[in-house]
Design a protein around this nucleic acid. Structure first.
Lengths: 107, 107
DNA sequence: TGATTATTTCTATATTTATGGAATAATAGA
DNA sequence: TCTATTATTCCATAAATATAGAAATAATCA
């Protein structure tokens, strides 16, 4: 991944309302949620929500699909994985025991 | 981790110069690099660099320590791990095969 | 067609963030 | 103490981002 792309992805979730939306979608699985449901669940006015959903889908971290009158938004797990991968690549200068748990330096 | 804290951490690396700095430090291991070295490696003017280093260390994603005349900055791998953990928690609504590689939904 | 629902776009305003030169502070060696 | 080095703070300016009401658009169904 290119650094500019990583910045775009990070910027799309470096904002409280958008991170709330993203976390909700990450937990909601592949089906996702309709825009209106997200708005009600998080108490965000429609136009503000629309602005944030646009940011998230333009970055690529969230997918949108029309289904009858609703637009379903869902987390793009692949993009998320690539971002986490990018952040952890080549870490720790090969020091022993530097990284643990989620972050796996060398595979 | 609280959402506000996650936003702070994400904001600190959702900017090209700061992500460059952070990635350089992630790769540099626990010893880190002196501010001046970072500036030369990345071609960032001193005052701009100082502004970004402050953002990074105030968020907690980067540590600073004085060593004689130099200030060494290094990645805070623990904070980084906590952030990645936060982003992936409870993901995918328990769907089979939804997450792979870096992102490990359920442990 | 017309009404209803869902969502987006337009718009103005407010707020936050980034940049880099100049001045300042802190450290250490001669 | 004087000087060089390292790094930060101050400051003004520029640029980007967030908010939400009102209007517009799009999709569905009676």
């Amino acid at each position: 991944m290119e650094i500019k792309n990583a910045v775009t992805l990070l910027s799309s979730i470096a904002q409280e309302a958008r991170l709330e939306i993203f976390r909700l979608l990450v937990q909601s699985g592949r089906q996702g949620l309709a825009a209106g449901v997200i708005g009600v669940k998080l108490g965000i006015p429609a136009s503000t929500l629309s602005f944030h959903l646009k940011e998230l889908s333009q970055s690529g971290l969230v997918n949108a699909r029309q289904e009858s009158r609703f637009i379903y938004y869902s987390a793009n797990y692949g993009a998320m994985n690539q971002l986490l991968q990018y952040l952890t690549e080549n870490c720790c200068a090969n020091e022993v025991g530097c990284c643990t748990s989620v972050l796996q330096c060398e595979e």
